[in-house]
Amino acid sequence: MTHTIALSAPAIWNPARVDAVHTGERTLDQFLKSVERRALRMAELATCNRDEALDLVQDAMFGFARHYAAKPAADWAPLFYRVLDSRLNDWHRRRNVRSRWLQVWTRADDEDDERDEIAQAPDTNDPGPLLRLAGTEAAQALEAALQRLPLRQRQAFLLRVWEGFDVAATASSMRCSEGSVKTHLSRALAALRRALEDHA
C-alpha cells in the first residue's frame, strides 16, 4: 500500500489576509497546517526523537486550539509557538530530572566514569530529514549544531531567523524579555558560526 499524501509546500500564513476573511474552524485548520511542519522540526531538533516530537506538537495543537483559538488570527503564530515552547521546556525539565536519577544510579555502579561531553551530546547517527534530503555535509553539520545548542538559544535562533519573528514576538513566544532574546540569539549565532563556518 502506498501513501497518497501530497508532499506539497506548506501554505504561506498571512494574518492580515486571514483577518479579512472568515476566521472559523477552516481558518484554524489552515493556520495549524501552515505551522505544523516547522513545529515538528523544532520539536525534533529539541528531542532528537520523531515520536516524542510528534507527541509534543500534538499537545501544542490541543493547547493552542483550547486556549488561544479565540484570539485574533494575527496573534496566532506567536501564541502557538508559546504553547510549543512551553511543551518543550516541560519535556526538557522532565528529561533533566530523569537523567539526574539515572546519574545517581550509574554513579553507584561505576565511580570512575567521568562526564563525557561527547557522550552527552545528542545522537547524530540518526540523520533526520535534513540529511536524508540534502545529503550534504552542511545539512549534517547544521542539524548537529542545532541539536547541541541549549534549548533557549535554539528557540531564539529558530524563531528569529527561521520563523522570521521580530524580537518582541520572539520574546512573547519564549515568555522572556527582549533583552534575553537578543542574548540567546547572539550566543546561538556565535556557536552556530563556529560549527558551520566551513560551510558558510
Binding site: 506548506p10 511542519r37 516547522r38 530529514p129 534530503l133 545539512a139 547544521l142
Partner: peptide, 13 residues
C-alpha cells in the same frame, strides 16, 4: 543557507 536547509527539511517530511 541555514534557513533554506531548514525549509527543505520541513517541506520534505
Amino acid at each position: 543557507r541555514a534557513r533554506s536547509l531548514l525549509d527543505e527539511s520541513a517541506r520534505d517530511l
